[in-house]
Amino acid sequence: MDLGLKAKSVVVTGGGSNIGREIVLGFAAEGANITIDIDPEQAEKTASLARKAGSGTCQVIKTDVTDLAQVQAMFKAAVDKFGGVDVLVNNVGWDKLLFFTQTDPEFWQKIIKINFVGNLNCTKTALDIMIPKSAGSIVSISSDASRQGEPREAVYGGMKAAVNSFMKTVARENGRYGIRCNVVCPGVTIPKEAGDVGGTSMWSKMDDMFTADQLEKVAKALPLRKIGRPEDIASAVVFLSSTKAAGYITGQVLSVSGGYSMIG
């Protein structure tokens, strides 16, 4: 199905690794022009794959999304090269699995900045570009930890819940401009292979996240009996980004988690 994304300008934050990489490749297959940020070496690998997959053009702009000036510079590069920004995917996220009593304020601030402040910076900058054109789509990657409450993800889950609420409000405020805002909540989603993540990824040391035995137990507990893969999330993101396929969908929080979360 042609989703009408050919030659559209798409910004994907955290586009170098795991879910971000597959999101980039999903847009590339639709012929979009893509701007990705963060780990330059890992992002360049993804950009190369995107070009082979059919992307019109894929550029890498090193950006710290917690720094508004850097975010603005990244979006300017997208506008200068592709004439605007049609789609933003707020994908950057980071966590370390710890019980709340094991964490401290320094850890809290890191989680808050990466998972929420980065989203604020990118969304505000995208809206400044999209509103004058009365068109645009924003998809933020949250987590089912935001909907269920998950041990060892207290602050992360809290920030992702903030993302859910924030995106609903932005959807209400900006629907009048033809801008749609939605959220995708993955469950446990693991890289296909070690080379799919960079050194800054939360998945760079798999055993720090889940052991093989733990992953097996997670899979058995899910209705679909399998762990999520990055392409599962990417398909939902690309769909929601398409005005042709999802043009009457906004303000929604969609769990893509093998049935872990079933919220009506």
Rank of each mutant, 00 (worst) to 15 (best):
E41S: 13
Q42I: 04
Q42T: 02
A43W: 08
A43E: 07
E44N: 11
E44D: 06
K45C: 11
K45Y: 10
K45M: 14
K45R: 15
T46M: 05
T46D: 00
T46W: 07
T46C: 00
A47R: 06
A47W: 04
A47D: 10
A47E: 08
S48P: 06
S48Q: 14
S48M: 09
L49Q: 05
A50D: 00
A50Y: 01
A50M: 02
A50Q: 00
A50V: 01
R51Q: 12
K52C: 06
A53W: 05
G54N: 02
G54C: 06
G54V: 05
S55V: 02
S55N: 03
G56H: 02
G56A: 11
G56K: 08
T57C: 07
T57D: 14
C58K: 06
C58W: 02
C58G: 06
C58T: 15
Q59P: 02
V60P: 03
V60Q: 07
V60S: 08
I61D: 03
I61E: 06
I61Q: 01
I61T: 07
I61R: 01
K62F: 09
K62P: 14
T63K: 10
D64C: 01
D64I: 00
D64V: 00
D64N: 15
V65K: 05
V65D: 01
V65I: 15
V65F: 07
V65H: 09
T66N: 11
T66Q: 12
T66L: 05
T66P: 04
T66M: 11
T66W: 04
D67C: 12
D67I: 09
D67P: 10
D67S: 14
D67A: 11
L68E: 15
A69F: 08
Q70P: 11
V71C: 13
V71L: 05
V71Q: 04
Q72H: 12
Q72A: 13
A73S: 15
A73C: 11
A73N: 15
M74Y: 01
F75P: 00
F75S: 03
F75Q: 10
